[in-house]
């Protein structure tokens, strides 16, 4: 399946080592992947606080691993709020 991933704000700075920076990119994933596995793949799990939005809805950290992904989904990662 193909999933569109969008990184907002400074989120690209938190990508895991060896992953090239991007703002928006399509990923080809195995059919049974969860949102939690995508988080691991991008290296976000241990790096920072973040918010994941799956097809426009916020996904709580506690259910990342039980949220299935489907072909055509969009996942948006939002970095922590900061003062501006």
């Amino acid at each position: 399946m193909r999933v569109n991933v969008k990184l907002l704000g400074w989120m690209r700075e938190f990508l895991g080592d060896g992953i090239a920076h991007f703002d928006e990119q399509d990923f080809d994933l195995a059919d049974d992947q969860t949102l939690g596995q995508l988080v691991n793949k991008l290296g976000f799990r241990t790096e920072t606080q973040f918010m994941a939005m799956h097809n426009g809805d916020r996904v709580l950290d506690s259910v990342l691993d039980t949220t299935p992904l489907h072909d055509g989904d969009q996942v948006v990662f939002v970095p922590p709020l900061k003062g501006g």
Partner: peptide, 11 residues
């Protein structure tokens, strides 16, 4: 700091 536009917008 303008990167926050996306963040607060999504939030």
């Amino acid at each position: 700091t303008i990167a926050m536009m996306d963040v607060t917008g999504a939030f």
